[in-house]
Design a protein around this nucleic acid. Sequence first.
DNA 1: AAACTGAAAACTGTTGACAGTTTGCGGGCC
DNA 2: GGCCCGCAAACTGTCAACAGTTTTCAGTTT
Lengths: 222, 222
Amino acid sequence: MTGIPQRQSLAGQAVDVLRGLVLTGEIAPGARVNEVDLAQRMRISRGPLREAVRHLISEGLLVYEPHRGTRVRRADAQETRALFELRAALECAAAGLAATRRTDADLSRLRLVMHDTRLGFESDRRAAYHVDLAFHRAIVAAAASPLIADQVRLVQQQVILLRSRHAIDPGHERASMDDHDLLVAAIGARDSAEAARIMAVHLDRVRDQMLATLEEGQGGVG
Amino acid sequence: MTGIPQRQSLAGQAVDVLRGLVLTGEIAPGARVNEVDLAQRMRISRGPLREAVRHLISEGLLVYEPHRGTRVRRADAQETRALFELRAALECAAAGLAATRRTDADLSRLRLVMHDTRLGFESDRRAAYHVDLAFHRAIVAAAASPLIADQVRLVQQQVILLRSRHAIDPGHERASMDDHDLLVAAIGARDSAEAARIMAVHLDRVRDQMLATLEEGQGGVG
DNA sequence: AAACTGAAAACTGTTGACAGTTTGCGGGCC
DNA sequence: GGCCCGCAAACTGTCAACAGTTTTCAGTTT
C-alpha cells in the first residue's frame, strides 16, 4: 500500500481519505475530528491534515468552532430544507440548460443511466441510489456549465452525508423514476422550462421523503 | 493599528487582509501570491498565511497549481460566461423565493436601496456599483435562504474581482435601474415567476456589458 | 452531598527549520 | 551562433516543537 511513492501531495491524499471516512459514516455526524489522532493514523504530520480538515470545512462536510475543534456536520430539518433550496436552485438551472444544450450523445447517456436505474431498482436497493446520483450528474454534465457542476457536486456530497443511514421507501423510488422519465423526455424535446419545472417537483419529493426519515431517526435517538 | 491584541486567529485576519488586497486590485489578477513575502509583510508565519491562501482558493479568488504557486484569478470571456450561469441560477432562485417570502420590512428596505441607487447614479459613478450590490444582497436577504445567500456572496466577490477596473456605460446603468424597478414591483406583487424572469434578463444584460468591456480591455493589453 | 475553585491534561493555534520540486541562468557542445 | 545539459536560487510541501485556550477532574468548602 505505502511502498510506492505517491505523486500527489499529502494534503491532497488526506482530503480524499478524510472525505471517505466522513461520507461512509466511519466518522459519524456530530463526532469530533481530532487532528493529532487522525494525523498519526494516516502517518502524516498535522500540517497537511489540518489543510485537509479546512478543505472539508469549506466543502461543508465539517463544521468548525474556534479553539473547540471541528465536527462532522449533522444537519437538522431546517438545515436540510436550506440545503435543498440551494440544490433546487442549481439543479433546476442545470436541467434547463441541459434541455437547451444537450447533444445526442448526452441524451443517449441519460437513457443508458435510466436503464441502469431500473436494473438497480430491481436488484440492489443501495446501488439504486448511486445510479440515481449518476443520473443527476449526467444531467449536470449535459448542462455544460462547469461552475454549476462543481457546486452541484458539493451539494450532493452533503446529501450523501445526510442520508448516511436510513431506509428507502420503494414507493418513493418508483415515483422518482417516473420523474426521471419525464425529465429525459423534456430534455429530449429541448423544453427548457418544462425540464426545470419537473426537476423542482422531483427535488421537492426527494426532500420531503428525506425529511420524513430524518425526523423518524431523530425521534428514536432523542 | 497593531497595538491592540486581536481576538480572532491570525489565519482569520490573514483571510480578511488578503481578500482585501485581491478585491481592491493591490494584487492584480494574474499576479503570483508569494507565501513568504506576504507572511513577512503581515508579520505572521507561513502557516496561518498558507491557510488564508487555501481559503481564498476555495472561494475562487485564487487559482492554484501544484508546486507552481497560486495566482489571483484572471477570468477570460468563457469563465465569465460560466460564472454568470452560476450567478443566474442562484439569484433567479433567490428572486423567486424573495417574491414568495418577503416581509413588508424586506420590501421597505428594497425601496430604500433603490432610492440610494438613484442618488448614487446622480452623484458618484463608483458608489453606484456598491449600492447596486447592496440591492442584490437585499433581494437575497429577503429570500431567507442562508446557503443560497452564502453562495451568492462568493459569486459576487468574483464579479467584483472581474470588474476591478473598467469604465461603466451610463446607458447600461439606467437600464439596470429599470430592471431593479421591475424587480421590486414583481417582488411586491409576490409574483415569483416574474421576479425570476426579470432577474434573468437583468443578469444577461449585466453579463453582456461586462463581456464588452472585458474584450475591450484585453484588446488593449494583448 | 452538592457546588465552587484551582490546577493539570488535551487539543487547537502558531512558529521556524528542513526537504523536494520547479525555474532561470551560465557554460559547454554541436 | 544556436541548442542542450547541469547547477543554483527561489519557492512550495512537510515536519516537529512551542504557546495559548478550553475542558476535565480532583480537592475543598459550604
